[in-house]
Write a protein that binds this DNA or RNA. Structure first.
Length: 805
DNA sequence: GAGTGCACTTAGTATTCCATCC
DNA sequence: GGATGGAATACTAAGTGCACTC
């Protein structure tokens, strides 16, 4: 396993220290806010060009449910009367008034549920493409190497599945006009992973993890018995024909030709591995004496040593888990028996010196290293999907290290072992050359040719072997773009159902069926507070909750109708919020709490499956998470529309940032306050004071000059240049502008110190809202989206300027 | 209906890049 | 050309939800 002589793994220059850079955990500051406005949409006709290795096909799809005209918008413009408290941005908990203004004719007015016979309740089932089980092993793919890249597979068929649904508010276009591809609900009901089941059947019906030996054999045999053609060379054929424009950002293609099928041809070079460990030989101390460690023992000790300055060191669980795993490597009889007697400082100091050396390298040296690294990695950075070159997202296998779970994770500190090729399953086109494992003598665990999934490779998470780590295409790929677009289309569709849904759950607040009452209240909270669904969690995960898993102790009731939330959500981020709710919601919560202990489930008859099953009866494909996207996007749309008054580009950008911030607050997207925040504020204040001093001086000079006197001397006692009154006035104006800008910057900095704006921009805000707004208001899109977002949202760039969510 | 496997999205933090200032 | 700080990017943990089995 350890080869001290090797500091290059598949050409990557070993940077052993880079794997151990320290990370700090800092406490967070919390705040909440909420707003839930509504808006409507337009209906762009979408031109989709499908391109693969052999052809370019163009088809125009009328997007399902998109033929609604802007004139319909007005019907939806019914604000939910969500009152924000003034403490919103000061780290205070919030007091949000909800519901009381929502009586008729509000979104809570009684629904008129109807059975729909139109296409809304068509639940499309896709028949899965048959994968040739025989072809799924490497033998057959090997023999197929000479085949062209694009192989044709069977087209999927569809069938119907009907449910009673709440009628969407608008009348939908005729079923015949609907394109399956853009029907967001369709895939949700499809039969899943049939090819995989067949493949699994061919593979003994065993879980992947148990199929290791059996499945590894064929692939491994292949790489032994026959020398593969150079994958890179093969890809380069495509590459030569592809220039930058071939990257998917230029496409408007829905990838895959069927519901379950994601691609037809897939070619890639596999993954790149971190360099093998290079021992440094620096000895740590045990009871004050230097200790000899094997490279393997030293590697794990170094992982710990480089974290000495992090907060993990103060966590007993982290230390305990580390020691437990390290002891397995040290062996029972090793001199090191107790972590408290260990002194890792020599290794820590060595690491600091290495970091410093790296920092001190000249720009040219750094550049040369970077270029070399890029050269070595280049072939792993892209894949060819249906003849189109696409960026790969995470082509680097995760290096070994100590697990840095968030919050009070019971597994923090455990050793994340090194991943080797025989841990990795590769997914690749049947006719594509299988990449050679980059570590000599190693074989891939398994080769698959599953075109119903988008991953290129996966391995079992060493911390939780039941789970997987996947290698996917980058966010800019067509596959990701299509899926993103479908997500926003689905949440946009919720707008047509939301009134009925709100009316339905409002009615159920008083239902005699307690399960129904719990579903109603949970849906209300998810809708109004953008709470996450809250799946059940195992004991070996951090103790966090979402809506369905809220505990009694997480929601306090304050009469007459205030709910006080306090819990740890995803990533152990604290959610604190005080909300005024509908009296019936308040009563229901009081009832759910009664007779229970603090640690008991608030919604004891509910879980996410039951909740989502219920939501699907109201709208095809509706799940709890759709509400978050819907509320985020509609808030942005509404705020941009309401608050853009004109002014220059900078002022409009401020309007956008303000709306973005509101969404981030609604979604509780937080970040830690940067270490240098207070120092930066001090500096800003100093600069402002300095400018104010200058301003005062200039004003005095102006008064003197107006009286025909010379200006005051400067701080050195030397005479200043005698400026004319106009020049002085100009300087005064400039200084004033500078001060104003700095004051604004200071305010914004303070305001946003704990709010993460990026998360909502990347995941929740329909980019078409942004693009259309930019077009309507002559704001260059680059002012809002950086390079990555422009690539990720390439599919949204052609949106009609009149688009509304 | 509970439990689980699997595939994917969402999330915060660390690191790197790059512009600006001195 | 070094320091600084904000933006961009990389990394990987932690969620959601569907399909399937029992």
């Amino acid at each position: 396993m350890y080869d001290p002589t090797l500091d290059v793994c598949d050409g990557v220059i070993a940077e052993s220290m880079s794997e151990y850079d320290s990370q700090d955990d800092k406490p967070l500051v919390f705040r909440r806010n909420s707003a839930t406005p509504q808006q409507n949409e337009s209906n762009p006709e979408i031109t989709i060009i499908k391109q693969n290795a052999s052809n370019v096909m163009e088809k125009t799809l009328k997007e399902e449910g998109q033929s609604r005209s802007n004139s319909e918008d007005s019907d939806d413009d019914k604000p939910l009367s969500v009152k924000l408290s003034s403490g919103a941005l000061n780290g205070n908990s919030h007091h949000i008034r909800m519901g009381s203004n929502l009586s008729c004719p509000s979104p809570y007015t009684s629904p008129k549920p109807r059975i729909i016979k139109g296409p809304e309740d068509e639940m499309l089932l896709s028949s899965e493409l048959q994968l040739n089980a025989g072809a799924s092993n490497a033998e057959s793919s090997d023999s197929d190497e000479s085949k062209p890249l694009a192989s044709e597979l069977e087209e999927p068929s569809s069938s119907l599945n009907k449910r009673p649904l709440i009628q969407p508010k608008i009348s939908d276009p005729s079923p015949s006009k609907k394109a399956k591809l853009s029907e967001p609900s369709a895939p949700t009901n499809r039969k899943r992973k049939q090819p995989k089941a067949e493949e699994a059947a061919a593979d003994d019906d065993l879980p992947i993890s148990n199929r290791n030996k059996k499945s590894t054999t064929p692939a491994s045999k292949v790489s032994d018995k026959k020398k593969r053609p150079d994958v890179s060379a093969s890809l380069n054929k495509v590459n030569k024909q592809s220039n930058k424009a071939d990257f998917s950002k230029s496409l408007k293609v829905p990838p895959g030709s069927g519901e379950g099928q994601k691609w037809t041809t897939l070619v890639h070079n596999g993954v790149i591995f971190p360099p093998l460990y290079k021992p440094h030989g620096v000895k740590m101390l045990y009871k004050g004496n230097p200790v000899d460690l094997t490279p393997e023992q030293e590697e794990v000790a170094t992982m710990f040593a480089v974290m000495l300055e992090t907060e993990y060191m103060t966590k007993p669980k982290f230390r305990e888990n580390f020691m437990s795993d390290w002891r397995k490597i040290l062996g029972e009889k090793h001199i090191i028996q107790n972590l408290e007697d260990c002194d890792f400082t020599p290794i820590y100091e060595w690491h600091q010196r290495e970091k410093e050396k790296k920092k001190q390298m000249s720009t040219d040296e750094k550049k040369a290293i970077k270029e070399e690294k890029m050269k070595q990695e280049e072939k792993y950075t892209w894949a060819v999907v249906d003849g189109v070159k696409e960026k790969v997202g995470n082509f680097r296998v995760e290096p070994p290290g100590l697990f840095r779970g968030r919050g009070e994770h019971p597994k923090m500190g455990k050793l994340k072992k090194r991943i080797f090729p025989n841990d990795i399953t590769i997914n690749i086109g049947k006719d594509a050359p299988i990449p050679e494992p980059p570590i000599p003598g190693e074989r891939w665990k398994e080769i698959r040719h599953d075109n119903t999934v988008t991953w290129l490779a996966f391995w079992n998470d060493p911390i939780n072997p039941k789970e997987f780590k996947y290698v996917f295409l980058a966010a800019s790929s067509s596959l990701k773009g299509q899926s993103d677009k479908e997500k926003y289309e689905k949440s946009r569709k919720l707008k047509d159902y939301i009134e009925g849904i709100r009316a339905a759950y409002t009615k159920d607040f008083a239902s005699k069926d307690s399960k129904r009452r719990q579903i109603a209240v949970a849906t209300y909270l998810i809708d109004k507070l953008a709470l996450r669904a809250g799946n059940e969690k195992d004991d070996d995960e951090a103790d966090t909750v979402g809506c369905c898993t809220l505990k009694v102790e997480n929601v306090e009731t304050k009469r007459p109708n205030i709910l006080k939330f306090d819990f740890l959500g995803k990533d152990s981020i604290r959610y604190q919020n005080e909300v005024e709710v509908e009296p019936r919601v308040f009563s229901a919560i009081e009832q759910f709490r009664s007779g229970k202990e603090g640690g008991d489930d608030l919604f004891d008859q509910l879980d996410t499956s039951k909740l989502n099953a219920h939501l699907k009866e109201l709208m095809p494909g509706l799940t709890a998470k759709v509400f978050r996207t819907y509320n985020a996007s509609i808030t942005l749309d509404e705020m941009l529309s309401r608050e853009t008054k004109g002014g220059d580009v900078a002022e409009k950008v401020v309007v956008y940032q303000h709306a973005n911030k509101e969404v981030a607050i609604i979604c509780n997207h937080q970040r830690t306050v940067s270490k240098s925040h207070s120092a930066q504020m001090v500096r800003l204040n100093e600069k402002i004071e300095e400018l104010k001093g200058l301003l005062k001086e200039l004003q005095e000079d102006l008064t003197r000059v107006n009286k025909g006197k010379p200006p005051l001397k400067n701080s050195d006692g030397k005479p200043k240049r005698n400026l004319n009154p106009e020049a002085l006035q100009r300087k005064i104006a400039q200084t004033n502008t500078k001060i104003e800008k700095m004051e604004r910057d200071k305010e914004t900095k303070e305001d946003l110190k704990t709010v993460a704006l990026g998360t909502s921009k990347i995941n929740y805000l329909d980019p078409r809202i942004t693009v259309a707004w930019c077009k309507r208001h002559d704001v260059p899109i680059e002012k809002i989206f950086n390079k990555s977002l422009l690539a990720k949202f390439a599919w949204a760039m052609d949106v009609d300027p009149n688009f509304r969510f």
